[in-house]
């Protein structure tokens, strides 16, 4: 068991170090793609806490992302140091999730899904109605960094990768610890879990907050990276759906599934989007339908299945 733990952390450190070094040789385009993969992986890893471990179908990712982006962007325009704006974007989203969780985590199934879906819409409208602070529907310009284009590409990649590393480390702790076990119990039978002494509400809240904090920080980084945000962009419903698709692609409730899913989704996007410019949403739709019907447990399950068959043969 202890050896297992050490192996995991060594693999983690080596993996992150390799990721930090490799794309730098690929030029700015590769770095941009790598930054996007890292961001997607953060979103997917975060969703996995609430959607994968606790099996609560959350569509609140866009709300957390947009909220983090706006908190961070507004603070940046007020001259708050950059890193602090990201941290506060993450904490703001987490705090919001804690309150929101209190209101909607007693709902189950579809009701929870809808309630979480609607939150982003309400926030978007709120932004639209506060133009003095947030720029409203016209969007908000974020101060540019004093760096060359190449430096920026590296900077944002490493920032996003660091965020991903933190989210993955948190996931490893949760998966192996008491809280991950509690969430497994809740996933399989919430009522029975309570009777066994599991404080379901506390653990669900924890999972929901974890599904927000890194997403909020990622939103903040995204705002700095793109230098301009508007409500339609950062509260886009696809931001809530893509994490789910990535986790389904990679494998629900697994540690590496979200990362694998992030890679595949971005690869698909790059190939499909470029070739079917006007039909990219439909292409994503076809992928989703095929996934749900043929691979509901994700590609990781397919890989495991193949490995098992090889092992037997």
């Amino acid at each position: 068991m202890t050896r297992n733990v050490i192996t995991t952390w060594i693999a983690f450190a080596v993996g992150i170090a390799l990721c930090a070094v490799l794309p730098i040789f690929g030029g700015n385009y590769t770095l941009r793609l790598a930054t996007t993969v890292a961001m997607y992986a953060v979103l997917a890893q975060s969703w996995n806490f609430i959607g994968g471990l606790a099996a609560y179908p959350s569509f609140a990712t866009a709300a957390f992302f947009g909220l983090g982006a706006y908190i961070s962007a507004v603070l940046q325009t007020k001259g708050v140091p950059l890193y602090w704006t990201w941290v506060l974007g993450g904490l703001g989203a987490a705090l919001f999730a804690a309150f929101l969780g209190g209101a909607i985590l007693h709902l189950r199934g579809h009701y929870f899904a809808i309630a979480s879906l609607v939150v982003a819409e309400v926030l978007r409208e709120l932004i639209n109605t506060t133009p003095d602070l947030t720029g409203g529907g016209m969007g908000l310009n974020v101060p540019a960094l004093k760096m060359s284009v190449g430096e920026q590409a590296q900077f944002f990649y490493h920032a996003m990768l660091a965020l991903f590393a933190i989210s993955l480390a948190t996931a490893i702790f949760v998966h192996r610890g008491k809280s991950g076990f509690a969430l497994q119990c809740i996933k399989q039978n919430e009522d029975a879990a309570s009777i066994l002494g599991v404080n379901a509400y506390a653990y669900k809240s924890l999972a929901f907050v974890l599904s927000a904090v890194f997403v909020g920080a990622a939103g903040g980084m995204y705002a700095t990276w793109t230098r301009y945000i508007d409500p339609t962009d950062v509260f886009d419903v696809l931001l809530s759906v893509k994490p789910l698709v990535m986790v389904l692609l990679g494998g629900v409730g697994t540690l590496l599934g979200p990362v694998v899913g992030a890679f595949i989704l971005l690869a698909l996007e790059e190939v499909v989007w470029r070739n079917f410019l006007t039909m990219h949403a439909a292409a994503l739709g076809v992928i989703i339908v095929a996934l749900v019907l043929y691979l509901p447990n994700g590609l990781m399950s397919l890989v495991r299945e193949i490995a098992r068959r090889r092992g037997r043969a």
């Binding site: 076990f181 497994q184 119990c185 399989q188 039978n189 009522d191 879990a193 009777i195 066994l196 599991v198």
Partner: peptide, 14 residues
């Protein structure tokens, strides 16, 4: 009301 996907030991461990 067991947790069906868990092992017997995990059920009791909970």
């Amino acid at each position: 009301q067991p947790f069906p996907a868990m092992t017997v030991l995990e059920n009791v461990t909970a």
